[in-house]
Design a binder for these strands. Structure first.
Length: 893
RNA sequence: GGGCGUAUAGCUCAGGGGGAGAGCGCUUCCUUGACACGGAAGAGGUCCGAGGUUCAAAUCCUCGUACGCCCACCA
């Protein structure tokens, strides 16, 4: 890989990502580091990307989803797996067709002007021209995907998989054609599946009118000359063929079996009884429009009612609508209302809130519409997919999504897969003039039953998700038996947002089990949705869309990635740009830490670690901390605790390596003894090198850039293919952690004192320190230079006893410090501080005493917990005593 | 009508049976040779409410309240 700077002195103070990112990404790609091939010596680890729409641009949701995948795949690659991240795009039937149709419209054309063949050609052209955009944008994100395996759902291979699956399901009777009520989008002019309809609450009205019976009222029945019904879609009354009441409903007992007359069509409307009717709602009598309402359709099936469709594909009233023919559905609603009023049949309206279904692609209100469509029977496919999750062959993280998946699967309904579009996989079913119908892998020239040559293919295409559901194996070569398929399937983890568990994840489970006889993935890792800082969903119409590319331009890819992962806790993410600038600061902090290490490291290559006896307390501490961090981050990444993993890396680099170790290292770096200085350099370089590897999956660019500059011998030419750090236990050193903790406490205590009294950093300060414990005193003596340096002291005198020397007395754990006050401090202020401190510590003492006084606690709590509390009590009491003594010393008591 | 999630510092959120945490913001100080995209110190919290379990609850359980989300063919 290339090195950007000849020598360390040339490294700029501020890291600038733009140039680094494009250069490094190009090199990684050219060197083939993203590529994964079946390798029996390695265990496979596979992720298939949730394929973005080919028409799409990278939005912040992709940025999160794909960053998480990249973190995982980089981690696994470094761990030595045969790690494949397979990228690609989805043809996105309706979405793409809409985009191209919109473009045509600007030229005053519709798809019908071009004709099917020309239109589809046009979409392909469009796809070639603009479709690759999102893939380029993924590269900017640093995605280490194997581009040599990039797939598109309409590639020849994947199309073959679609056909194979269709034919198989058709031949097994699991795909069938039926005349049913489906969700129809009058704007897209196609059927939609249930999942593609979005429901939202709507403040509407319930309108009431009456049907009058054709014969005269029976003498006994009061008000039985008519039956009143209520509806939210008044225009559908044009297709009414009956009125239903509940058989238990005594109000209508005499009406059942009688007939009313339709005021416009003149049809006879029978009053029927059916359990589906809720007696409590509306008037208790329901108008039946079997061609425009799913419930009515079912009732009609049971009672053999006529199903009269009153609308065309654009939701305009057809010839069945008598004088309303040609009107739009909402025009018709108004016109029907007026006509009913004129006839004296309209009985008014009441406000009524109900859910309204809209096309998820264009927002048009969906019309339940009777039409001939293709369906997949889902129950037989769902059963194995339910079992597989119950048996934990596929597991969800976080686990709560398991129930979400199961609940949906257990209530699954048949899937309408035909779309009246032109862009997509054409349904491989043919019809001959003799009425035969069959599905075929290859385009036929004659009917297999009657050998007739007058045949035609079904005009519809398949729902986009029909091909997406095959993605985990169609992309690896299925239905061919390929080496890839053998090695990389089943995939290891699917990373996605919860909003597509039903529409995609569940279907992949079913397809994988049916056609591969194995689950498609071992894990489903579900993350939240990225929203704006106010928690609103991002949408173009709200104008609150955060463009990830803009953030990358402003703060760098690493900064964006880090912010996203740091907040990937499983909850929705309310992204604010301040976070990204914070992460940018972190990247810059690392950059500058590296600058320090490099300017001090010299030109000589660092060969491994210094001898253990050369290690100073701070060395042992940072190596111990590094080892724990390695363990922590590894286990966090392995269990999908991505945000915690990012935090651990951040904490280690900033709060430990930068804040303490580098500062501590400065003392010995200027040592006259070259061995001492050399040891510090070696530790600095080694710790930094490992920290870079730990951080690499999160912030790949800056870590690579620095890694290339380090004076170390490397086994690999790039950090991205280097080995993931492991803690071999050699540097685990709890004693060092405790000792260095003491140093930190002493330093912080002195710093607080200085800050609180506004003592200038330049003031000469030579405190005395002591402890009841001789070991403490020895350690203090040893760490004297370190403490002095970090706390900004001229020196620290370690004494056997502080005696009654004048000065401020500070308590730092088991260590007592005395700082001469002459000319430095306002004694009254110090008195106040001490009193506050005594008060605070005194409360703590009372709390612990109460706890220890509780018999249940001493009798039943674990011994270690009790001992710990006793120890704390003594410590706090001693602190109070010392503070009080100090107060006395100042003459303030 | 079902189901789920969330309530912790001014803001955004981690955490989680035994000493309340981070980032940002705020206050004070520091242009000390890695970094002002920085350093040091600090202020600021009945961890939503009420019960329960426990020696011990911010943490577990129940109920409630508020907010958010998903599913659903009540005309």
């Amino acid at each position: 890989m290339s090195r950007a700077y000849g020598n360390a002195a040339d490294i700029p103070k501020v890291y600038s990502p733009a140039e680094v990112e494009s250069r490094l990404y190009r090199e990684w790609e050219e060197r083939g580091y993203f590529r994964a091939d079946p390798d029996p010596a390695r265990r496979p680890f596979t992720i298939v990307i949730p394929p973005p729409n080919v028409t799409g641009a990278l939005h912040i949701g992709h940025a999160l989803d794909d960053t998480l995948q990249d973190v995982i795949i980089r981690f696994k690659r470094m761990q030595g797996y045969g790690a494949l991240w397979l990228p690609g795009t989805d043809h996105a039937g309706i979405a793409t067709q809409n985009v191209v149709e919109r473009e045509l419209r600007t030229q005053g054309l519709s798809r019908h002007d071009l004709g099917r063949e020309k239109f589809v050609e046009r979409v392909w052209e469009w796809k070639e021209l603009y479709g690759g955009k999102i893939i380029e944008q993924l590269r900017r994100l640093g995605a280490s995907a194997d581009w040599s395996r990039e797939r598109f759902t309409m590639d020849p291979g994947l199309s073959r998989a679609v056909r194979k699956v269709f034919v198989d399901l058709y031949d097994s009777g699991l795909i069938y054609r039926g005349n049913r009520i489906i969700n129809w989008c009058p704007r897209c002019e196609t059927a939609l599946s249930d999942i593609e309809v979005e429901h939202s609450d709507h403040e509407g009205v319930l309108e009431q009118f009456r049907y009058e019976f054709e014969e005269s009222p029976q003498p006994s029945g009061k008000g039985s000359g008519s039956v009143s019904v209520a509806t939210t879609r008044l225009e559908t009354m044009l297709g009414d063929t009956a009125v239903a009441v509940n058989p238990q409903d005594e109000r209508f007992a005499g009406a059942i079996g009688r007939f009313a007359v339709h005021p416009f069509s003149g049809r006879r409307i029978e009053i029927i009884a059916d359990e589906a009717v809720d007696m409590e709602f509306g008037t208790g009598a329901v108008k039946m429009t079997p061609a425009h309402d799913p419930t009515d359709f079912e009732v009609a099936e049971r009672h053999g009612l006529d199903k009269i469709s009153i609308m065309d594909g654009r939701a305009r009233i057809n010839e069945a609508g008598a004088q309303f023919e040609g009107m739009d559905r909402y025009e018709a609603r108004k016109a029907v209302r007026e006509a009913l009023q004129n006839k004296g049949l309209y009985e008014g309206s009441t406000p009524h809130n109900y859910a309204i279904g809209k096309c998820s692609r264009c927002g048009t209100i969906v019309e339940p519409w009777l039409s001939e469509q293709w369906f997949v029977s889902m129950k037989p496919l769902a059963e194995p997919a339910i079992a597989a999750v119950k048996q934990e062959r596929t597991r969800f993280y976080p686990p709560r999504w398991t129930n979400y998946y199961l609940n949906w699967m257990e209530g699954i309904r048949d899937w309408c897969i035909s779309r009246q579009l032109w862009w997509g996989h054409r349904i491989p079913v043919w019809y001959c003039d003799n009425g035969h119908q069959w599905a075929a892998m290859e385009d036929p020239t004659e009917c297999p039953e009657c050998a007739g040559t007058q045949i035609h293919q079904d005009p519809d295409v398949l729902d986009t998700w029909f091909s997406s559901q095959l993605w985990p194996f169609s992309t690896l070569g299925w239905p061919e038996k390929t080496e890839d398929l053998d090695y990389f399937y089943p995939t290891s983890v699917l990373v996605t947002g919860y909003e597509i568990i039903h529409i995609w994840v569940a279907r992949m489970m079913m397809a994988g089990l049916r056609f591969m006889d194995e689950v498609p993935f071992e894990w489903v890792y579900i993350h939240g949705i990225v929203r704006d800082a106010q928690g609103r969903k991002m949408s173009k119409s709200l104008g609150n869309v955060i463009d990830p590319l803009e953030l990358i331009d402003r703060f760098g890819t690493d900064a964006l990635r880090f912010s996203l992962v740091e907040h990937a806790t499983g909850q929705d993410i309310f992204l604010s740009t301040e976070w990204v600038s914070g992460s940018r600061n972190f990247v810059n902090k690392l950059w500058n830490a590296a600058r320090f290490v490099l300017t001090n490291a010299g030109d000589e290559t660092v060969e491994g670690m210094p001898d253990p006896e050369r290690l100073d307390l701070s060395d042992r501490w940072i190596l111990h901390r590094l080892a724990s961090t390695v363990d922590e981050v590894t286990s966090q990444l392995e269990s999908f605790e991505m945000a915690s993993a990012a935090r651990s890396v951040y904490e280690f680099i900033w709060s430990e390596f930068c804040d303490w170790y580098i500062e501590a290292a400065k003392v010995r770096l200027s040592s006259d003894d070259p061995e001492v200085a050399g040891a510090v350099r070696a530790v600095l370089v080694n710790v930094l090198e490992q920290a870079l590897r730990l951080a690499h999956p999160f912030i790949p660019f800056v870590t690579e850039e620095i890694w290339q500059l380090l004076p170390v011998t490397r086994e690999k030419p790039s950090i991205m293919i280097s080995q993931w750090p492991s803690s071999d236990g050699r540097y685990a050193d709890p004693a060092a952690e405790a000792s260095f903790g003491r140093v930190k406490t002493v330093v912080s205590t002195i710093r607080s004192f200085r800050s609180e009294y506004g003592i200038s950093p330049k003031a000469r300060l030579v405190p005395s320190a002591s402890s009841d414990d001789a070991g403490d005193r020895d350690a203090l003596q040893r760490d004297r230079p370190l403490i002095s340096r970090l706390a900004g002291l001229d020196d620290l005198r370690v004494v056997g006893s502080l005696g009654s020397s004048a000065g401020a007395r500070l308590i730092a754990g088991s260590i007592e410090i005395s700082i001469p006050l002459e000319g430095l401090v306002d004694v009254a202020a110090e008195g106040q501080r001490l009193r506050r401190q005594i008060d605070k510590t005194g409360k703590e003492v009372a709390k612990i005493e109460a706890k220890l006084g509780n018999q249940g606690f001493v009798g039943r709590a674990p011994e270690a917990v009790v001992a710990e509390q006793r120890r704390r009590l003594e410590e706090e009491k001693a602190a109070v005593a010392k503070l009080q003594a100090q107060l006395q010393l100042l003459g303030l008591d």
